[in-house]
């Protein structure tokens, strides 16, 4: 592992939601259980897991939508809960930006693209010439700087709208982007180009990216490091080449095997996959008892009841 200090560290983060329905009994959901992660500057960390695994909760806690039940979030070594002065909080919120899954609802339909970007520029870079900055930002995200500013969100395709969302993060000079499934609502055919944009933002601007996804193939494409979550716990983390290329935890293996592979024909005769999936889900849901390092930086979780009995 490189020795630089992480731009963002999650230290034993837990989150418990109390569900109090109008009818029926109240219950408690452990959305996150002791999650520890490090994101290094200028790199991308992919957070992979199924729906309900807690990966989006991690993203929302980083941008401050939810506060941790226990544990700490450290930004460049400083606990964000301890940032009490207005100036500190402003700096943090400027440095950390989120890009949401749904490009259709993330932009205000009543305003032009110019409005969306100029507002961010005026708030965070008041000293620059807004028109020149607008042009250069749109060029950075590969949108036409002449025609785009006067368009409304409904006049853009999903991929273009997602580019506007990244442009907005650039306009405030974000250093860390939390991208929550930015490509999953886009067509397969344009997914790769948006991933390419993120790749470029990372290599050219040194942006750090927390890439939240359920698609392990895109994680491999973009991220240097990958962490796999299941039922609120990190079950495997390390360099992507290790985690995706040589998965060691049962759940990661399952996830890996389920990625559609055009060369492999499915048949109705094998109940093996479903049986395997059921077994892995049951064993992986148990609390993590220990983390075992199997090669430098590559860590897998051991469960209270062994995953490989």
């Amino acid at each position: 592992m490189p020795s630089d200090t992480p731009i963002l560290s999650l230290d034993n983060l837990s989150k418990t939601f109390a569900v109090r329905p109008v009818f029926g009994r109240a219950s408690v959901v452990d959305a996150l259980r002791n999650v520890s992660l490090d994101l290094l500057p200028g790199r991308a960390l992919a957070l992979v897991g199924e729906s309900g695994s807690g990966k989006s909760t991690v993203g929302k806690m980083i941008v401050g939508v939810h506060s941790p039940t226990s544990g700490r979030i450290l930004f460049e070594g400083q606990d964000i809960a301890a940032m009490t002065s207005k100036a500190d909080q402003m700096r943090y919120r400027q440095a950390v930006q989120m890009v949401f899954q749904d490009p259709f609802s993330a932009l205000n339909p009543a305003h032009t693209i110019r409005h969306h970007l100029l507002r961010a520029l005026a708030l965070h870079q008041p000293e620059t010439d807004p028109d020149a900055a607008l042009r250069s930002i749109l060029e950075d995200v590969e949108l036409d700087p002449v025609s785009t500013p006067d368009k409304f969100p409904h006049e853009l395709s999903g991929g273009q709208r997602q580019r506007v969302n990244f442009a907005r993060a650039l306009a405030v000079k974000a250093r860390l982007i939390v991208a929550d499934e930015p490509t999953s609502m886009l067509d397969v055919s344009i997914r790769k180009s948006v991933l390419g944009l993120m790749q470029r933002l990372k290599s050219e601007y040194g942006l750090s990216i927390l890439y939240i996804t359920h698609d392990i193939a895109t994680a491999e494409y973009l991220a240097e490091d990958t962490a796999v979550m299941f039922r609120g716990q990190v079950v495997e983390k390390g360099p992507t080449s290790q985690v995706v290329g040589n998965p060691q935890h049962g759940y990661t293996k399952l996830l890996r095997a389920a990625v559609p592979d055009p060369a492999l024909r499915l048949t109705g005769g094998d109940a093996g996959f479903a049986a395997q999936a059921k077994f892995v889900r049951e064993t992986s849901a148990h609390p993590v008892s220990a983390l075992r390092e199997i090669s430098p930086g590559h860590v897998i979780a051991e469960h209270a009841v062994p995953a490989h009995a």
Binding site: R191, K192, T218, E220, K253, R256, A257, D261
Partner: peptide
């Protein structure tokens, strides 16, 4: 062909499990 090129596919195929089931 362009659809195939646009698909992010896993670089290496999973070993063992996918074929064993």
């Amino acid at each position: 062909r362009s659809i195939w090129d646009a698909m992010p596919l896993l670089a290496q195929r999973p070993e063992g499990m996918a074929h064993a089931v």
